[in-house]
């Protein structure tokens, strides 16, 4: 009975060390310093890769001119709209096909067939249909987001333990309660996995679509800068995409903590 408390307190002491939190940052910070030095002393030309400080300057310049904010917000808007449309359709069809075998027989194999077409390969066709306007880009994002949400929702609902559903029936739950209290919470971990994939694909699709054909947005900002050899703006655009991707990932993590507090992945 002496050992247990000691062991616990030692562990929490170790965990609270600031050292533990600093460790993961050592390598990236070191690389950043090396990069800065290499660029500053002319080992890398600005054409190839500008120094970190130059990128910061570009960020400040474009912030002041308002160009960065405008392009970021238009990209965000496209991403969100495509995500909401594609995500809702995916969730809806996933729930429908997961819950109803008839709907599954009718729809699932068609959806699986379409899934085999890489959505980015549709770009020429989509441009023919919609021109190079926002519709084309949003349509591509919708396609990119739809499949991971659909597949994971469907799979999540299908892989619910039938014993739990049977138990729910014995304990007096009607179909609607069964759905809200057993089927949906049981499928939620899978749905969130789909959400995470979908957000990744959302940015990827948007990057490609904006880079190929756009007159605004982060991808356009990068391509435009390329024509004028502004490597700093190109790198800035790439960093912006990375940052937005990270924000999306963190959002999913927070959702998981909020919605799945019971899940083994949330219990240390």
């Amino acid at each position: 009975m002496q050992i247990a408390p000691n062991f616990v307190s030692e562990k929490s002491w170790e965990r609270s060390l600031p050292w533990q939190q600093i460790t993961p940052w050592i390598v990236p910070l070191g690389l950043l310093v090396i990069w800065q030095l290499l660029a500053q002393f002319g080992f890398i030309t600005t054409r190839i890769l500008p120094a970190p400080t130059q990128i910061v300057e570009a960020a400040i310049r474009l912030s002041i001119s308002g160009e960065m904010f405008r392009n970021v917000s238009i990209s965000l808007w496209r991403a969100m709209l495509g995500f909401i449309i594609g995500g809702s359709i995916g969730l809806g069809l996933g729930v429908l096909n997961g819950a109803s075998p008839t709907a599954e027989r009718l729809l699932d194999s068609s959806i699986q067939m379409i899934r085999n077409v890489p959505h980015l390969s549709l770009i020429p066709l989509v441009i023919l249909w919609f021109g190079i306007g926002d519709e084309a880009r949003i349509f591509l994002v919708v396609l990119g987001v739809f499949f991971p949400i659909y597949i994971n929702t469907f799979h999540g609902i299908r892989s619910i333990d039938p014993h739990l559903v049977e138990m729910g029936k014995v304990y007096g739950l009607r179909s609607r309660d069964l759905f809200w209290q057993i089927i949906l919470p049981g499928a939620l971990p899978n749905i969130l996995v789909g959400l995470r994939y979908a957000l990744g694909l959302m940015w990827l699709t948007l990057i490609v679509a904006e880079t190929i054909a756009a007159n605004s947005g982060i991808g356009y900002m990068a391509m435009n800068a390329r024509e004028f050899m502004q490597t700093d703006v190109v790198v800035l655009s790439i960093l912006l995409y990375a940052l937005l991707g990270k924000v999306a990932d963190t959002a999913v993590r927070l959702l998981e903590r909020w919605w799945l507090p019971w899940h083994p992945s949330q219990q240390m």
Partner: peptide, 28 residues
């Protein structure tokens, strides 16, 4: 149809992991 005056206790407890102990008991 379903026997509403009966309850079953199964070999596997069949608790809902996303509910607390109390909320499992209060199911339905």
């Amino acid at each position: 149809g379903l026997n509403r005056s009966a309850r079953i206790m199964f070999q596997d407890a069949r608790l809902l992991p996303w509910r607390s102990v109390l909320d499992n008991v209060a199911l339905g």
